[in-house]
Each structure stands twice: as C-alpha cells, then as structure tokens.
Amino acid sequence: MNPIEWSDFQKVELRVGTIVEVEDFPEARRPAFKLKVDFGDEIGIKKSSAQITDLYDKQSLLGKQVMAVVNFPPKQIGPIISECLVTGFHRDDGAVVLAVPDTEAPNGAKLA
C-alpha cells in the first residue's frame, strides 16, 4: 500500500448520483454499459462506461444510486467520452460490485 496525505484524499470528489439511463456498449473491448448519472443541480448529468455486466442488468441499474469520482478529466473510451468514474470493488472472480450508499442520499452529496 502507498500512503497518501490527507490533502491528496481531499482532492478527490466522490459524489452520490442516480443512474438515469443505461445502454448497451457493444463497441467496448470488454462487456460494459454506457451510463448517465444524475449528480444534482450543481454537477448535473455525467456520462460513464462501466464494466459491470456480470452482476447487473439494465433494469436493475436504472434508478440505482452509486458513488463516483466526478473530478477526473474526461476520458475517451471508444466512441464515448467518460465524464466520471463509477466506483466498485473487484471480486475474486473478476466481477465488479458497485459502491453504493446503504440508504438514499441527495444526488451530488459528497463523501464525508
């Protein structure tokens, strides 16, 4: 593990958002979905791609709240530009379990 300073952690904008749109992403090298996530009035809706097809389907993702990094620079991923990084945890089998709040939080709420 590489220790970081508190000031480094404070730079990361981890926010809660609600998935408002889910599309297949057939152009992705590995199975993925294209997501639109609503982070509230201050941040708005951001696009992302997520390799989460092992444990989730489009219907189960729609309306789900997730935690995402919203202050990375946009990144070209195939034909889309990813504007946020939806977070999750890798299982031993390679599947990703989303990092989610355990109760509803306002869109845009920052990790405390």
Rank of each mutant, 00 (worst) to 15 (best):
P3Q: 06
P3N: 11
P3C: 09
E5C: 08
W6C: 06
D8L: 03
D8R: 03
D8M: 02
Q10G: 10
K11Y: 04
K11P: 03
K11I: 04
L14S: 10
G17E: 14
T18Y: 02
V20W: 03
V20H: 01
V20R: 09
E21N: 15
E21P: 08
E21A: 15
E23L: 15
E23D: 13
E23H: 10
P26R: 06
E27P: 05
E27A: 14
E27Y: 09
A28Q: 06
R29H: 14
R30C: 05
P31W: 02
P31L: 07
A32C: 11
F33D: 02
F33A: 01
K34W: 06
K36V: 04
K36Y: 08
K36H: 11
D38Q: 03
G40F: 01
G40H: 05
G40I: 03
E42M: 12
E42Q: 15
G44H: 05
G44Y: 13
G44M: 02
G44C: 12
I45W: 00
I45T: 06
I45V: 15
K46L: 15
K47A: 09
K47F: 07
K47H: 13
A50G: 09
A50D: 01
A50Y: 02
Q51I: 04
Q51K: 03
Q51S: 07
I52L: 04
I52W: 01
T53F: 00
T53H: 00
Y56F: 08
D57P: 00
K58N: 08
K58G: 01
K58S: 06
K58T: 01
S60W: 01
S60P: 03
S60E: 11
S60I: 04
S60R: 07
K64R: 15
K64D: 00
Q65F: 07
Q65C: 08
Q65W: 08
V66E: 02
M67Y: 13
M67N: 09
A68D: 01
A68R: 06
A68G: 07
V70Y: 07
N71C: 06
N71D: 03
F72N: 15
F72C: 09
P74V: 10
Q76I: 14
G78H: 11
G78M: 11
P79R: 08
P79K: 13
I80S: 12
I81Y: 10
S82E: 14
S82R: 09
E83G: 06
L85G: 03
V86Q: 03
G88E: 15
G88S: 12
H90R: 12
H90D: 11
R91K: 12
D92Y: 08
D93Y: 01
G94R: 02
A95Y: 02
A95R: 00
V96G: 10
V96C: 08
V97R: 13
V97P: 07
L98N: 05
A99Q: 05
A99W: 02
V100F: 01
P101F: 00
P101M: 00
T103M: 13
T103D: 14
E104C: 05
E104L: 12
A105T: 06
N107T: 04
A109M: 13
K110R: 15
K110Y: 07
L111S: 04
L111D: 00
L111Y: 14
L111E: 00
A112V: 13
A112W: 10
